[in-house]
């Protein structure tokens, strides 16, 4: 059975972008600071729209901010 994990580099990117605070990122992404905290700590998986907004706040693509790791035992190649 596959276990999926979504990790992110938001905390690292905040510090790399002029030590952006969680509140500043929340304002840019139009969410609450609590949501940013929950996303950073991996306790909440954002929607696709929110993931795009957060990525845009850093000027990066979604894949640069969020990483999807699938621990699938069956490797499927076409």
């Amino acid at each position: 059975m596959a276990s999926n994990q979504l990790s992110n580099k938001i905390r690292r990117l905040r510090f790399d972008n002029g030590r952006m605070t969680q509140q500043q990122l929340a304002d840019k992404a139009d969410v609450t600071r609590q949501t940013i905290i929950a996303i950073e700590s991996g306790k909440y998986t954002p929607s696709l729209l929110l993931a795009f907004r957060i990525s845009r706040a850093f000027g990066l693509s979604v894949e640069d901010v969020f990483q999807y790791e699938s621990d699938d035992s069956e490797s499927g190649t076409v």
């Binding site: 929340a26 139009d30 609450t32 949501t35 729209l49």
Partner: peptide, 9 residues
Amino acid sequence: HNVEFDERD
């Protein structure tokens, strides 16, 4: 001027 109710809420 605050976001009170986002998708997580």
